[in-house]
Design a protein around this nucleic acid. Structure first.
Length: 477
RNA sequence: UCCUUCUUAGCUCAGCUGGUUAGAGCACAUGACUGUUAAUCAUGGGGUCCCUGGUUCGAGCCCAGGAGAGGGAGCCA
């Protein structure tokens, strides 16, 4: 008999039809009721043991975590917790699970503990919900861009460019690190390395993405990126997934519009297709918040927060306006910021971003037109000579979720800026070719996928929204 | 990398001013249970008190060094 997924079984009208299910045991109560889960939904299927047809030996092997197969009739449940249940005529143990050794117990576990057994945490309610939502969001990203006619471009994972400037890189080499070949000056001779030169893992696909946009007009990348920064926070990973669209003939405003539309689209998609999972996560969060003192609790539930994002436009303002607001706010005047906001040109600290998003506007904020000194070389210089056409989208509880800009398309301005900051122009000659041949205004942004998943699931540590997190001093599994 | 808190049973934690045999709840095992909802009841087993060194008659507790984790900051997505 064909296996039916539990998600589909639970939607079926129970008429005593015979069905077969294969899944894992979550709990076994009263020596009679098995809560079965196959990962297709957060809800379990209740299987009722028929004592006449089940021998004692099999009953003993129905333990938490065991894989079993059950066949029987689907009927309306006599109990209160569920609408349907499977009256099992036969139960078969597919894979035993020694309850004494199985780390997942039918009880609440801390997220920190589950992180240590990341290979098993998929089997919990919380992580089941998180990774189903993650899947929906990933699919929604592709659907959004595909529906708009964007081309999905695969940019390289290994790169020879070390001029992207987005952070420390992981070196890729096949040389013997204990005894590397040296050149005349005593340096490691990368000419003898696999690629004949020094290579690294990519920190961003943007520059390659721009090349493609200069032919296909609208493209996006969605792939892993790597940063060897020694960042120990709940918002950083050494290996994370990034979405980087790049659009020819777009200016900064078009760029912002697209980013906002994308974010709202994927949040709506997740709510529509994984409403139950998000509902579960929302309730989980509410329970957790009850442990906190009143003033630390969030004003909105996760569900309301997500709906609020869909119903309200993101607040847009320039860096200069933000500095004004911060300088004039009572918080600053009462010297409650650790870093006081005094003059134009300083980089915003995360306490300032949080104030703007969580206290002042109470909604997502798009900040634009930053001072050129604190932004990257490729951002388009504004006419004021001081700022660049950059935009950051700040989300409550997350901080920067999107960073983007209109790109500098004028060859001379770009080259001058690169020389000012000390970026080797010759090494990026291939990049500058886009400005030499048929250059045009274009724009793009990077969206940190895990930060998006954080926001939509309401989780607070980024290590809990990627299956196997890579962080400093941690590369398990 | 900096600041800060923590590390005791499988998990979550308690452990007084340094003092005898280190505790609880849950989990697990055994038994009971034919309508349970993280079932319930009874009984039972379970410890490298993170590691190394020191102080002391005596260290889970004090001191030094190290490792790991949480929270905050910087860097960023």
């Amino acid at each position: 008999m064909t296996r039916i997924r539990i998600k589909d079984i639970l939607k079926t009208e129970p008429q005593g039809q015979q069905i077969s299910v294969k899944a894992w045991v979550r709990t076994f109560r009263s020596n009679q009721f098995i809560a079965l889960n196959d990962g297709s939904t957060n809800n379990n299927l209740q299987v009722v043991v028929d004592f006449g047809n089940t021998d004692e030996g099999v009953l003993k092997r129905i333990t938490t975590g065991a894989a079993i197969s059950a066949t029987g009739n689907l009927v309306a449940s006599l109990g209160k917790g569920q609408s349907v249940e499977l009256k099992a005529s036969s139960i078969e143990i597919i894979g035993d699970s020694d309850a004494e050794k199985y780390p997942l117990q039918p009880k609440k576990h801390s997220l920190e503990f589950l992180r240590e057994i990341a290979h098993l945490r998929f089997r919990t309610n919380t992580f089941g919900a998180v990774f189903r939502v993650r899947n929906s969001l990933a699919f929604a990203v592709h659907k959004f861009f595909n529906d708009k006619g964007f081309l999905y471009i695969h940019t390289p994972i290994i790169t020879s460019s070390d001029a992207e400037g987005a952070g420390e890189m992981f070196r890729v080499t096949s040389l013997d690190i204990l005894n590397p070949p040296k050149n005349e000056t005593g340096q490691v001779d990368y000419a003898q390395d696999f690629f004949g030169k020094s290579t690294n893992l990519t920190v961003s696909g943007q520059l390659e993405g721009e090349l493609a946009a200069m032919a296909f007009s609208d493209i996006y990348t969605f792939g892993p990126t790597f940063r060897a920064e020694n960042s120990n926070t709940a918002r950083h990973l050494a290996e994370f997934w990034m979405i980087e669209p790049e659009m020819a003939f777009f200016d900064l405003k078009d760029n912002m519009n697209l980013a906002e539309e994308l974010l709202q689209y994927v949040i709506r998609y997740a709510l529509d297709s994984n409403g139950e999972d998000i509902e579960f996560l929302s309730q989980r969060l509410e329970e957790e918040e009850k442990q906190k003192p009143q003033n630390e609790r969030s004003e909105m539930t996760l569900l309301n927060k997500l709906k609020f994002c869909l119903d309200n436009n993101f607040e847009r303002l320039t860096y200069t306006q933000a500095i004004e607001i911060l300088r004039e706010c009572n918080h600053n005047k009462k010297k409650k910021f650790q870093y006081l906001v005094d003059k134009w040109g300083v980089d915003l600290q995360s306490e300032h971003e949080r104030y703007l998003v969580e206290k002042h506007f109470k909604k997502p904020v798009i900040l634009t037109d930053y001072p050129k000194e604190i932004k990257s070389f490729y951002m388009r210089q504004n006419d004021d000579g001081k700022t660049v056409a950059a935009m950051d989208i700040l989300f409550p509880g997350i901080g920067e979720i999107v960073g983007g800009s209109q790109r500098e398309e004028r060859l001379e301005k770009l080259e001058t800026r690169m020389k000012e900051i000390g970026i080797p122009v010759e090494e990026l000659s291939w990049y500058l070719d886009t400005r030499r041949f048929g250059s045009c205004p274009h724009a793009g942004f990077g969206l940190g996928f895990e930060r998006l998943v954080l926001f939509v699931t309401g989780m607070t540590n980024i290590r809990d929204v990627i299956p196997f997190p890579r962080t400093p001093k941690n590369c398990e599994f």
